[in-house]
Write a protein that binds this DNA or RNA. Sequence first.
RNA 1: AGGGAAUUAGCUCAGUUGGUAGAGCGCCACCCUUACAAGGUGGAUGUCGUCGGUUCGAGCCCGGCAUUCCCUACCA
Length: 890
Amino acid sequence: MELPDRYSPNEVEKRIYAWWMSKGYFRAAEKSTKIPYSVILPPPNVTGQLHLGHALNHTIQDCLVRWKRMSGFNVLWMPGTDHAGIATQSVVERELKKEGKNRQDLGREKFVERTWEWKEQYGGRIVEQMKRLGDSCDWDRLTFTLDDGPSKAVRKVFVDLYKKGMIYKGLRLINWSPQLESAISDLEVEYKEIKGSMYHIKYPLADGSGEIEVATTRPETMLGDTAVAVHPEDERYAGMIGKQVSLPLTQRKIPIIADTYVDKEFGSGVVKITPAHDFNDYEVGKRHNLQMLNILNKNGTLNEHGGKFKGLKVQEARKQILVDLEAAGFLSRTEPHVHQVGHCSRTGGVAEPFLSEQWFVKTGPMAANAKRVVESGTTVFEPESWTKTYLHWMSIIQDWCISRQLWWGHRIPAWNCTKCDHITVSETDPAACEKCGGAVKQEEDVLDTWFSSALWPFSTMGWPGDTELQKTFYPTSVLVTGFDIIFFWVARMIMLGMEFKQDVPFRTVYIHGVIRDAQGKKMSKSLGNAEDPVQLIEDHGADALRYTLMAQIAGGRDLKFSTQRLEGYRNFMNKLWNGTRFALKGLSDFEVPADGVNALPLKSELSDPDQWLIYKLGLVEKEVDDALKSYRFSDASNALYAFVWNVFCDWYIEFTKPILAEGSTAPEKKATQLVMAQVLNRIVRLMHPFAPFITEEIYQKLPIRGEALIIDAYPTPKLDKAFLALGSEEVALELDLVREVITALRNIRGENRIKPGVKINARLAPKEAKEQKILGANKGSIMTMARLETCEVGPAESLAKCAVQPVMVGGMTVDVIVPLEGLVDIGEEVNRIRKTIEKLQRDVAGLTQRLSDKNFVANAPEEIVTAGKAQLDESRKQINTLEGALARLM
RNA sequence: AGGGAAUUAGCUCAGUUGGUAGAGCGCCACCCUUACAAGGUGGAUGUCGUCGGUUCGAGCCCGGCAUUCCCUACCA
């Protein structure tokens, strides 16, 4: 079968993917005798576009899933998308803005309707992009976080936790985004360094006996001050504790209190306390029962407590207040100050600590469980180093603020009575207050998006129903994710999984790094350095992109993306393609054996290259098997790269060219054809998880194949035992000697500028009968591959002028000799031999030193010492030979 | 401030149990040798950040230092 000489991924990938889908190969069986293997896809935002981070994350999962599917597991890769409360709501609000409207104009119901419409129209985009990458998810089970199933789970969990007293509503200081007019979680606050000022303000004592100086970066918060604090042991202020201070501008009287929170050494040792707008002050306020004076509106403007500054935004109020303080002589000095300011990670605006009524999940008891299962190894982190980070975070975890003042999301299933103050929390919408029967009104807030995500491992499997799916696939096998959401997501899934399923959600958490650009900068739209994976797939193919990513994943470290590297792996795909193309030519008259993949040649019929190739195949199968089992993706893909390119294409194909040439009647032809067909078959099977498309395409053209590669068996040393037994380490070593001899001849040619067209004569001088025999058996290959006119195997003769290169492999030695009469400029060869001698002399010097060290000889393992001695011996002999050759040349 | 990681060829990085360093890209030379120029053959390049320790032997183990990065927490 003829194939084009360039592989063009585009058409192939789309066709193959559609075919896989039509055959239902991605489907998981609810019940099966096979061992289950399950992975839940971290659901991307419906608003999202596939970026390289997804590509990395998904490629890892798809590789694992395909590997396990081929290894005979019943595989479920559960796909889904996330409603992404803030992100999605923002997108729709932006659309409305273009129409000159806002969400309030539409009202809640219409707005949510409109958002659903948006989701239906655009929410499938990222799913289509995932398919381009080759994701073999069980698409029939694609779930959206707002679907009925997950929504029921959300309600059930909320109600249960509420009834257990683990969800409560309370007035708390939380992080607030004035842009969103919503609470955000602590984890959604990003601290940025801001160059601001430190303002020193004089607070006069109320009794007129003096003044006290405070320092602040946020002077406007003085409107919410309800105390001034000093350290209890600070002698400077001992007499003032208990007195009152008259707050500048408003003359409000507030007390001076003592609290150890204050650092005597810092600044003036006096701190203004604003419990409603600072987390530390909030704690102080609670300890001292201070009034919590909230000076802000939801939109970040000052409220009625702002007095004359009411209605101003924080920044404007700050300016005004400073002007007034200055004018009134309260501002003693201002100095530049760099400090960290919390920003809303969603909008980029400044986040404000804000006192408000919110819903919380009590995390203490669940966190204890979630710590325990990781400490005991029920769930393990890979790489292991993340365990520490996880445990540390779990030990300082705060209660989780789960309410958001948004419209898009799971509305909190709590109803406030209009008559009494009872809250009815229920899985189904209640008609009336469960206590007094009065009319009820549902909470306006929705739940944090991560609340539904935390239930994802079981809510996607039909929970709270008692489904087969859960029995088969929960706990899942592995979760693959970036470290940035260990706390947002991983920890919460473990907590809620333990609480509601009494079991961990996954056995292993595989944490990968993030993708950076070639310079090591984080990729982001705003930096303009984000590569679009879909475009990369269009240009170079999904297989090349996947391979580029896999080849660089090592130990959870970040990886740098470069198109140069991508092109390299694109070339590799082409290499595989062409290698196959050529191999198939040699198999045109191959008689496909009836027992297909189990057909074995007789060992006695195998050539040295055959046995060498099969031996190397065994090594790569073991390496890939080991590497995949321990998530060493780069090791696996690099081993395959080297095998395909350097072993199969560079040598085996070259060795077998004469045998498989058109019209060849070589006696070993049949055996070689069978080996070629079997190895090709195994190459694509081994490579399939890394490069699924091209391998399936090739597989379908192979003489030995099954129905589909995606469901064929994954080769392992165990599975391939009978075939691999045909390989031989000893023969492999012998063939390595042959390869080295060929390389030496090529080296002599190259260094001496012998034109490729010129055929040369060579004499190969073996050390012993063993080498003699090997060279004799492979003389034909040597002559072809080194382009020799004549080749004599026998003892070195004293030829007048010749190039000499000793070759050593596994204790075997051959001197490669090429007479140079009339061929070249002798000077080149003199230099070449001198360089070789120098290198050997360095070796000899090093070895001599070591071997003369009594301690080394006494302590080093015997095999190291004997090997060293043999090496020394051999190197000395070679120096002799070379010096002889050199003398004749001079 | 605390915790973690990194430092190996010009660039990007491998190097799993300690035995005198590897890949890809780039570079140099030669080559359209009928699978592949997205290719072939050959070649050059490293006191493995630094100082010390353990050891017969250290890129690898231990400690100090330097530089860089990340995470967590932040003093008004």
